[in-house]
Amino acid sequence: MRLDRLALERRQVWIYVAGIAAGLAAGSTTPGMGSIAELLLWPVLALLLFATFLQVPLLHLISASRDLRFVGVALLGNFVLMPLIVWAMVSLLPGDPAIRLGVLLVLLVPCTDWFISFTQLAGGDVPRAVAVTPVNLVLQLLLLPLYLFLMAREEVTGLVTLNVVAPALLIVAVPLIAAAVTQRWVDARPGRLVVRDRWAWAPVPLLASVVFLVATAQVDTVLGALDVLPMVVPVFVAFLLAAALTAKALAASFSLPPQQARTLAFGLGTRNSFVVLPLALSLPEGFEVAAVVIVAQTLVELLGMIVFLRLIPVVFRTGPRAAGGR
């Protein structure tokens, strides 16, 4: 059953492409479908976030500190080095604030969900991946406003108002609290673990539903933003390459074993588009492209993970000596 879910996650990019295509077709051919999709988008997105947060060990933050070296390297990469790389990349983009803000939003926050699945598929260190995820989640929620203030002051000045931030915070905070409460309820009795296991299947179909609804509700924006893709796709590809090189440099500098190095590579290469999508969708008129940029990054990232699954195990080879080094 577990292998079946991982097989589904291997093919998720094609499921999302199909969802986008179906959404564009529905929005283009069915009058009134866009308004219905817009109403459904928020509750489906909330369910997606709940399913995602439920897989993150929110109540076990302390356990992440047991391996200070790996956690420290992961935090250095995710919250110092990669943000600096993103800042440099964004400076090369056109001056359109919606494009720049969309790229910053999606590339500044590390993934807390499917990077664990990809780590497992690539033979990485899954326990350490699980341990670092709640730290990643807490720090990104705290640091994202600071990053945006430093890197996109002109874009966000006068833009981030209570009307914009409140719905986005609500759509993230409610599933986060619900997931924490559910985790405590699940942990109280071993027999309830099946609840979390069943929800582990939900992110792929729920994200497919989200991209379908986004494409349906924003069909004109999506089609009108196709000329944006040649600008942002090379940035997303360059980010993946930079993540792999940064992981290689950090692993060598701190003498990480191959399995931990693989985990680091996937941790640096994957981003948390689920968390920032509500903020992008809450932006005022004229910034609709930001959400399209985030969806585009998700697809590029997933295609990139297919390459990572072949490349990263070769770059960080395991062997008798490497295994003994752990």
Score class of each variant (00 low, 15 high):
148 L>P: 00
151 M>G: 03
121 L>K: 10
118 F>L: 07
119 T>N: 11
122 A>T: 12
143 L>G: 03
147 Y>T: 02
152 A>H: 09
129 A>D: 03
119 T>E: 03
128 R>M: 13
148 L>H: 04
152 A>N: 10
135 V>P: 00
146 L>A: 14
151 M>S: 04
138 V>R: 00
147 Y>I: 01
135 V>C: 05
126 V>Y: 01
134 P>S: 04
139 L>N: 02
148 L>T: 04
141 L>K: 02
149 F>C: 05
147 Y>F: 12
123 G>Q: 08
144 L>D: 06
124 G>A: 08
135 V>Q: 01
145 P>Y: 13
148 L>I: 08
142 L>P: 06
125 D>W: 11
134 P>Q: 02
151 M>V: 01
142 L>W: 10
151 M>D: 02
126 V>G: 03
134 P>G: 05
156 V>W: 01
146 L>Q: 10
143 L>I: 09
137 L>G: 01
136 N>L: 14
155 E>R: 01
129 A>I: 08
138 V>D: 02
141 L>Q: 06
117 S>W: 11
149 F>G: 04
118 F>H: 06
134 P>D: 07
139 L>Y: 04
120 Q>S: 10
139 L>K: 01
121 L>T: 05
127 P>Q: 14
156 V>F: 06
122 A>Y: 13
118 F>I: 05
124 G>F: 09
118 F>M: 07
156 V>P: 03
155 E>Y: 09
153 R>H: 11
140 Q>R: 08
139 L>R: 00
118 F>V: 03
126 V>C: 03
139 L>M: 09
129 A>M: 13
148 L>G: 00
145 P>K: 12
134 P>E: 06
145 P>W: 13
128 R>P: 08
153 R>L: 08
155 E>H: 06
153 R>P: 09
122 A>H: 13
117 S>T: 13
150 L>R: 09
134 P>N: 06
138 V>F: 03
138 V>T: 06
117 S>K: 11
139 L>F: 06
149 F>V: 15
125 D>I: 10
126 V>R: 02
143 L>K: 07
120 Q>W: 08
125 D>H: 15
131 A>F: 10
136 N>T: 09
139 L>T: 03
152 A>D: 12
151 M>C: 05
133 T>F: 02
120 Q>K: 11
132 V>Q: 15
146 L>G: 08
135 V>G: 00
126 V>T: 02
136 N>D: 13
133 T>P: 00
129 A>H: 09
127 P>S: 13
132 V>H: 12
130 V>I: 14
141 L>G: 05
126 V>K: 03
155 E>M: 06
123 G>M: 07
148 L>E: 05
126 V>F: 05
125 D>E: 14
141 L>I: 08
